[in-house]
């Protein structure tokens, strides 16, 4: 019980929310990292997945890369990057690790989405004289959008989690509040930081959920 009260007191103290180590600053860092990395991993993964999916090539690679990504510990990649020259440019290791872990779900989902488009529809489009490019942008892409967006959602949640672990390897973001709490042996700060991170992750997931419901019906998975 005393931990709960202490955690509440920590959260209620305005001093913990302002300044360079404050919650707002860390939250902004976390959000910026997540957004920038989500955008760049989309720019890297989606064109590749769309072209591969359109051509129907490299399927084994696109699917297996996702499984391989799961076997590699995020923390290990962060530390390995930190010890390479990449470690010298500030948030470099964090950004590279975040992008590395966001690419597999994006790639796999977009590729599978493209391949799952009804072959009959593709044949019909071809029969109407559509070129490969028209087929890709006007038929396959819209029909695979639900899967693709689901990949973006998984990647975003993954990014939030990875950005938290980055704090273990000296990166910025909300995880810093937790690691600082451990260094100070302050259980209230650790728990308060964890609560903020958990709520943040759930809010991100929730926003995607809401966006999915508000979006047009044909962008929803399951149809």
């Amino acid at each position: 019980m005393s931990t709960l009260t202490a955690t509440w007191n920590w959260l209620a103290d305005p001093a913990h929310w302002s300044g360079d180590d404050g919650v707002w600053h860390r939250l902004f860092q976390h959000l910026a990292l997540t957004a920038v990395c989500l955008l760049s991993s989309c720019l890297i993964a989606l064109p590749v997945a769309l072209v591969l999916g359109h051509l129907g090539r490299g399927g084994a690679l696109a699917v297996n890369i996702s499984n391989a990504g799961r076997a590699v510990p995020t923390f290990a990649v962060l530390v390995l990057l930190l010890l390479t020259p990449v470690g010298n440019w500030g948030e470099g290791p964090t950004v590279v690790a975040l992008v590395l872990f966001a690419v597999p779900p994006l790639l796999t989902n977009a590729y599978v989405g493209m391949r799952e488009v009804d072959r009959g529809v593709v044949q019909a489009a071809r029969g109407m004289g559509m070129t490969g490019r028209q087929l890709m942008f006007h038929v396959e892409l819209p029909l695979s959008l639900p899967m693709l967006l689901n990949g973006v959602r998984i990647a975003a949640v993954q990014l939030v989690a990875t950005a938290t672990i980055a704090a273990l390897a000296g990166g910025g973001g909300l995880g810093r509040i937790i690691t600082a709490g451990f260094n100070l042996a302050s259980t209230p700060q650790v728990v308060a930081g964890a609560l903020i991170v958990a709520v943040f992750a759930l809010v991100v997931e929730g926003l995607f959920e809401i966006a999915e419901r508000l979006g047009p019906a044909w962008t929803r998975p399951g149809r």
């Binding site: 938290t164 937790i178 964890a194 991170v197």
Partner: peptide, 14 residues
Amino acid sequence: YTIPSLAMFSLLLP
């Protein structure tokens, strides 16, 4: 599953 692992471990600390 959505809760990041670092936060999960930290929440269980008390």
